[in-house]
Design a protein around this nucleic acid. Structure first.
Lengths: 225, 225
DNA sequence: AAAAATATTTAGACTAGTCTAAATATTAAT
DNA sequence: ATTAATATTTAGACTAGTCTAAATATTTTT
């Protein structure tokens, strides 16, 4: 049932295309250049690779237009995302890594091939719905649960909510959040919005209050209380 | 501190050489052909690869004689064995795999690169000393604990002991052992030795008695009671 | 609608890893 | 000590994946 033979490199291209597809409208094409950017490689390499992946029916490739994932391609990509996020939960919940550290390790672990392993890992972790960054973990069929939509920057004065995810995943950003105790589950209330730079004064449950930059507000997902 | 850049393929060659070195006398060479056998590849490919590994000072290569691991090569090989065995413990103890299933998955997991991961996994598993097949897990420095030496076939009539390891690792063999309840920790006593085929009548703690073939006796490690 | 700027593909070369077939070296046998 | 058998290496080709530089297509600007 699972895929015939696919290299980690091919998997990574499919993952990149999937992620780029999410950012554009439903039936438009993902461009060669955007893939090259995402993969930190050159456009010429991308052209070669997408031809191979098209050959394997994982995506459709229209020269000078771009690519679109096929059902098979989407399945492989969401399987990877599922594995990546399950491993991240494992690394944080069981091994005590911080959310800032897990990405590069999960990036390797996601390529381990064993359906049984994924299934057992999922059970061991008690079927988690979200990874340590608040991103939903797709099920075996590649279906995603609702993902957080509201950003802290969308809140108005006196509104409150709970931090449920991060949009940006850079370790620096995550470490900064840790230092400010702006972690998942934290309840925040907006007490003031500074107009000229769009920063916010945020009050935590422990009554401490401080200024949060616009950049940070735009990268924190909130569940309204 | 840890190695610069090494591919999984190179790692597998070093592991093969290490394993073959164990089977021969201290300062003799591992032959090209034996490596080709172990790796399921051709001698010509081995020649190419050992030249590369010699270039990287992971082993010394003498044309027409064979190879010998350097200190660096040994370190990389024992690190791999350490990781392989730790992952096997994880798969059996935490995920509930059988000892017959874990090898091919650990074979992939052992190539994940993160010293911190190994360290935390080791702690999570509470610093196991042996893997699910009774093989000792080397420490960070590559030092091995004593490995089981006595085989069931070495026992005399009326002698007893506990199964502490297996010499052969084929899934078929391991599944057969499971079916006969000849698992690690099982206490066995020799009640009879059949001379003409070197098979043994073995009594378990539950008083059940049955014939165990010579082939099996030669592949079970025993801790004498 | 032509010119300029930008995006994409092709051509050709490179590396790691593999193979087969031929050449050469070593070991065993007479 | 030659010959025969076996082990090993070399030569040359192939695949996957990458790159640079040149060619071509598309889009934007005027």
């Amino acid at each position: 049932m699972s895929q015939k033979k696919i290299s980690s490199t091919e998997e990574n291209y499919l993952k990149a295309v999937y992620s780029l597809s999410e950012k554009i409208s439903e039936n438009s094409y993902v461009s060669t250049n955007s893939i090259a950017d995402e993969m930190q490689t050159k456009a010429a390499s991308v052209t070669d690779m997408v031809k191979r992946l098209a050959e394997k029916t994982m995506l459709t490739y229209v020269p000078y237009k771009g690519v679109r994932l096929s059902g098979l391609g989407k399945k492989i990509a969401t399987d990877l995302i599922r594995k990546h996020r399950l491993w991240e939960v494992f690394l944080v919940e069981k091994l005590g890594f911080t959310w800032a550290e897990v990405h590069p390790i999960a990036e390797q672990l996601e390529h381990i091939k064993s359906d049984e392993l994924v299934h057992r890992l999922d059970a061991f972790l008690e079927y988690p719905e979200y990874d340590p960054h608040g991103d939903p973990i797709p099920d075996k069929e590649g279906k995603f649960r609702a993902k957080p939509e509201i950003l802290l920057s969308d809140l108005k004065i006196s509104e409150a909510g709970i931090i449920v995810g991060v949009k940006m995943h850079s370790p620096q950003f995550l470490e900064y959040l840790d230092s400010k105790k702006l972690v998942l589950g934290t309840k925040v209330e907006i007490t003031e919005i500074i107009e000229f730079d769009q920063s916010m004064i945020v009050k935590l449950e422990n009554e401490s209050s401080f200024n949060v930059s616009s950049k940070i507000c735009k990268n924190l997902y909130i569940q309204m209380a």
